[in-house]
């Protein structure tokens, strides 16, 4: 079966703390609860999100879409190289 070779997508979260206004949208609507609001403040006095469990990120990019500040984006995690790349590639 093909499915055997498919791997769950993984993402790397990039956060621009200085643009964040701490609305919590990304934290609340991440389907796998990757993020939490940090206890720290950014320069504007907001709590930016931080990654609590990077392994859970599925690269769905919902946080990127819902963030009103363009302060968070997600790139695909580099593959671990333990499987046949061609199934994902061209």
């Amino acid at each position: 079966m093909y499915f055997g070779k498919l791997k769950e997508a993984k993402g790397v979260v990039h956060i621009n703390e200085s643009w964040c206004k701490g609305c919590g949208f990304c934290v609340n609507y991440c389907p796998t609860k990757v993020l939490v609001l940090s206890k720290d403040y950014n320069a504007k006095g907001y709590h930016p999100p931080q990654v609590q469990d990077a392994e859970l990120c599925r690269d769905c990019k919902f946080c990127e879409l819902i963030c009103p500040e363009f302060a968070i984006y997600v790139s695909p995690a580099p593959s671990d190289g333990d499987e046949d790349k061609e199934t994902h590639g061209a």
């Binding site: 200085s18 643009w19 206004k21 701490g22 609305c23 949208f25 907001y46 990127e64 879409l65 819902i66 963030c67 009103p68 500040e69 363009f70 302060a71």
Partner: peptide, 23 residues
């Protein structure tokens, strides 16, 4: 898509406009 040199924008925390712009 965005003029990044103009960020951060003027919208308030939690304002919905930014989401629509991304969409």
């Amino acid at each position: 898509f965005l003029r990044m040199e103009r960020m951060p924008h003027i919208w308030c925390p939690g304002c919905g406009i930014g989401t629509v712009v991304t969409a």
